[in-house]
Each structure stands twice: as structure tokens, then as C-alpha cells.
Simulated scan of single mutants.
Amino acid sequence: MSNLEREPVELLCPPEPARSPSIEVLAPRDVPLGGPRAMQVRRTLPQRGRTTIGAWCFADHYGPDDVAATGGMVVPPHPHTGLQTVSWLFEGEIEHRDSTGSVELVRPGAVNLMTAGRGISHSEVSLATTSTLHGVQLWVALPDASRHGVPFFEHADTEEERVDDARVRVFAGALPGLGRGASVTVFSPLVGAQVELPAGGEAWIDLDPAFEHGVLVDRGPVRVTIAALDDEPDDRPDDADPLTETGHSSLVEWSELAYLPTGHEGVRLTATDAPVRVVLIGGVPFGEELVMWWNFIGRSHDEVADSRRQWQAEVIDHGDPAGRFGTVGGYDGSPLPAPELPTVRLKPRA
């Protein structure tokens, strides 16, 4: 999905500092995806309090939207650099087309992952048969060693697994103790999964203690409880509840994102009197400084500005299929021009 803000903010994203062992709950902000009948998305990453969770650097949560009222998703061809897009749907279908020649449907239960590398362009349009559109769009920052590679696209089905009362689908990376997850390529240690609970249900999900995690609530609320490994007494019996003495717990509401720092062996998710669905993301803290603006991720203001210049010159002005971003075949319409860059150079954001 494109970032269709008319005045996107430039972000300098330094490596995140160490945090306390307690849960942080991040509220979303509403962002319209362009036009008078714009789809509204709720964005929890990036924001002032947190710009990354592992390599995950962007999270839009949308729907359920009545397509007859909003017009659905119509995102013209637009560019990306230095990242992977991860499309995950709860309801509806979206047609993806990109400059590598890929044409694929995004459907519930299957993941579409596009690796932009040095540069790619793509479009996303909901199908005419779709009445309700509901899902998340996530971005993963590519580490410096991998961000200049050849762009490519992958589509993979996922398998449902049971953990206590939960139904779990891993769509990127892997969770400890579960299957290998979706067979898509990632370039840093990370995980992405959907977890569903019935009303009153509960599940303990094992986590990699080297990862930080985020729990994005699509349906809730849900009680999120964690135990810090460093807090656990050495003489705790093997069969003891790790949360009895050391738990940190928060009730997380719809569309909020709970941030869980590193050093936890698991998370307990507990439903109240309503069913729960969350998206769990996580990864090793991303130790590189990022510059994010519009649909580009780079390492400097000049690099991002050069990406914008090439997109405008090669695609918007000349439609050069041999250029850095190629062209998207089969899309009936014009590509999306880039917004104007700010008149000042990038400044760090608090």
C-alpha cells in the first residue's frame, strides 16, 4: 500500500533505546488514503514514541470498510525502495500488480510479500466482487546489506495451528514451538502472525526473548500479560506460572498496539466477553538508522531525494520501462506522482 498523505513527514529513525520491561500501549492516528471518499487507515507505526519493532517500520490497520460507501482500495502504481511490503487480509480481495510482472490476489489466509530492494513499483485495487475490505498493511525495513538487491514478489498460503484456546497463523518468520510458518523470504530475524481467541479464551504464546514484539488489536479488547526473564526467581519450580510474581499486564483496546520489549519468554493473551483477533509482530531490534519519507526508505536525506527525482523523471515524466522502478502492466490509469519534498532538510524527530 502507498502512503498517500499529501504532506508526508520525513522521519529520521535512530536505533531504538532500551526500554523498561513494562508494556507500552501506542494509540493509532487516522490517515485518509486520498480522495473525498477516502478509505481511512489507522497508523500505529511509525510514530513519535516508536518508529520500529524489530525491522517492522510501518503498520496500517483498516476496515471493516463498506466498499460501496468508500469506493474500496484504488492505489495507482507507486514506488518503494529499501523495504518489504507485507499484505495480510481478514476480509475481501485485492489485486496486486508490480513492475516485476507479478499479478496476484491478496486473500485472507495467504500472505503477499513484495521485496522492493533497489526499487520497484506496484498497484493495489480491491476487486469489484469485494463488499467489505479489512486487513493490515505492514512494511519491513531491509538491512543495509540487503537493501540494494533485485526486487521480487512472493505469495504463500499459511496453515492454522492451535495453541491453548488460540488459532494461530504465522505469515512471516517463525514462532518458537510452532511450524516453520509461511515460506516467504525475510532478511532479518522476525515474526508476523495472526492470533484469534474465542470469547473468554486464553493462550500462552512462546516468544523469542531476543525479539521485541508488538500486539496490534483488530478485534478486542485483549489482556496482554508478559513476564520478564530477568525478573523470574532462580528457585522458581519448573511447573510454576511465570506470571504469578513477575507479570506486567495491560488491557489493549481495538486498533491499539501494545509494545513488548526484549527479554520475555512468552505473552499471555486473554479475551474478555468478546472474541479477539490480533496481529503479532516482532524481531531483533533494528540497529540501523533509517530515513523514511513517503514510500522510500534510505539512509540519508539526499538518498531519499534522489529516489524521488528518479521516480518523477523516469516514470511520471517519461514512462521509461527500463528505469529503476519499471512500469506496472495492466493497470488502467496513471502512476502516482510523488509529493513535494519539504523545503528544509531532514531533522531528527523527538
Rank of each mutant, 00 (worst) to 15 (best):
E5N: 10
C13T: 13
E16R: 15
P17Q: 04
S20A: 15
P21A: 06
L26C: 03
A27V: 04
D30Y: 04
P32W: 00
G35Y: 03
R37V: 04
A38D: 07
V41G: 03
R43D: 06
L45P: 06
L45N: 05
P46R: 12
G49I: 03
I53A: 05
G54Q: 08
G54K: 04
A55R: 11
G63A: 11
G63C: 10
D66Q: 12
P77G: 01
H78I: 00
G82L: 03
V86T: 13
W88F: 14
F90A: 13
E95Q: 13
L105G: 07
R107I: 10
P108Y: 06
A110V: 01
V111E: 09
M114H: 06
A116N: 05
G117H: 10
H122R: 09
H122A: 08
S123G: 09
E124A: 05
V125M: 03
V125A: 05
S126Q: 02
S126G: 07
A128W: 00
A128M: 02
T130A: 05
T132L: 11
G135T: 11
G135A: 09
V136K: 02
W139D: 12
A141D: 10
P143V: 10
D144Y: 03
D144F: 02
A145V: 10
H148R: 15
V150M: 13
V150W: 06
V150G: 00
E154N: 05
H155E: 02
T158H: 09
T158D: 07
R162Y: 00
D165R: 03
R167V: 12
V168E: 06
R169C: 10
V170H: 03
A172V: 09
G179R: 01
V186T: 15
P189C: 02
L190V: 12
Q194H: 07
G201Y: 03
A203P: 12
A203M: 11
W204F: 15
I205E: 10
I205R: 09
E212C: 14
H213R: 12
G214I: 10
V215H: 12
D218R: 15
D218C: 09
G220L: 12
R223Q: 14
D234W: 15
D235H: 13
D238H: 08
D241K: 03
D241I: 04
P242E: 05
T244M: 12
E245P: 00
E245V: 13
G247I: 08
H248K: 09
S249G: 11
W254C: 01
S255H: 12
S255G: 00
P261L: 03
P261Q: 04
E265Y: 08
L269E: 08
L269R: 11
V276H: 11
V279G: 04
I281P: 01
I281K: 02
G283V: 06
V284H: 11
V284G: 02
P285Q: 07
V291D: 01
M292D: 01
W293S: 02
W293L: 01
N295E: 03
G298A: 01
R299G: 14
H301V: 00
D302S: 10
E303Q: 15
D306M: 02
A313G: 01
A313L: 04
E314Q: 14
D317E: 15
A322Y: 11
R324W: 06
G326L: 10
T327G: 02
G330H: 05
Y331E: 05
D332T: 06
S334M: 12
A338V: 04
P339W: 13
E340M: 13
P342T: 11
T343V: 11
T343R: 13
V344A: 13
K347D: 06
P348V: 08
A350W: 09
